[in-house]
């Protein structure tokens, strides 16, 4: 939940009086031109940035003060791969598995589900294509089955098959009661996989708008959904 939030980068306001909500079991998309504030909003929710004014809460916790606690529930796929070039894809995944104490699933099976072969897993990251790196990062972001998945341009650098896998992943996440917030320039694609969305325009958030695929199906995609609990743990 973000209320009246202003985020400054230096003296420049990147987000201006932003209100934003996301609820359990839904996919929320963000779209808009470059530099409009989509990444900033995702980084704010992930606890990498703080508000100069207003408030940002995730699962009832302050996005800045409680950022370490929040990160236990959040998977974040950013613009950058967050990988070590001199380690293989598998070593990167195993490292993330150990430091996050992930025990639920075999993380390599998640990577294989994302189209990464064992041969690819044995390559050092600097030898991987941009799309393969993205898949490795995606495997790491999702291995903990986070309650909130933040995806920043998840379709970038992926082939059609990879993009379909991302869409499928988002739908499965939402179907299992988790929340996905996705920023993308592939507007039609994310709208088809989402429940609600916001337009970002020069730091201002316009919306929410109901995704066309949900417009005539449910009452879930409303400004204040009834029955759905908010990502911050409160209901409006």
């Amino acid at each position: 939940m973000v209320r009246d939030a202003v985020v400054m980068l230096g003296h420049y306001p990147v987000l201006i009086s932003v209100d934003f909500d996301a609820f359990e079991g839904e996919v929320v998309y963000l779209y808009g031109p470059n530099g409009s504030g989509k990444t900033t909003l995702l980084r704010l929710i992930a606890g990498y940035l703080s508000v100069a004014k207003g408030e940002a809460k995730v699962f009832g916790l302050d996005a800045k003060a409680d950022r370490r606690a929040i990160r236990q529930y959040v998977g974040y796929l950013g613009h950058h791969a967050h990988l070590y070039d001199d380690l293989t894809a598998e070593e990167n995944i195993r490292f993330a598995q150990r430091v996050t104490r992930t025990t639920e699933d075999d993380p390599l099976s998640i990577a294989k589900d994302l189209g990464l072969s064992q041969k690819t897993m044995n390559l050092k990251v600097h030898k991987l294509s941009a799309g393969q790196r993205k898949r490795v990062s995606m495997a790491i972001a999702t291995m903990r089955r986070p309650q909130l998945l933040l995806l920043d341009e998840p379709h970038a650098a992926l082939d059609e098959q990879g993009k379909d896998l991302v869409d499928d992943l988002m739908r499965r996440y939402a179907a299992s009661g988790r929340t996905v917030i996705v920023a993308s320039h592939e507007v039609e694609r994310v709208k088809a996989a989402s429940d609600r969305g916001y337009l970002c325009d020069r730091g201002i958030l316009i919306g929410p708008e109901i995704a066309p695929s949900r417009a005539n199906t449910t009452t879930k995609a409303t400004v204040q959904p009834s029955g759905a609990s908010q990502v911050d743990g409160h209901s409006d």
Binding site: R68, R71, G78, A81, H82, V99, A141
Partner: peptide, 11 residues
């Protein structure tokens, strides 16, 4: 690759 952000994200 901004791996530091990854370390923070891992908690």
């Amino acid at each position: 690759n901004q791996a530091k952000d990854g370390l923070l994200a891992y908690g």
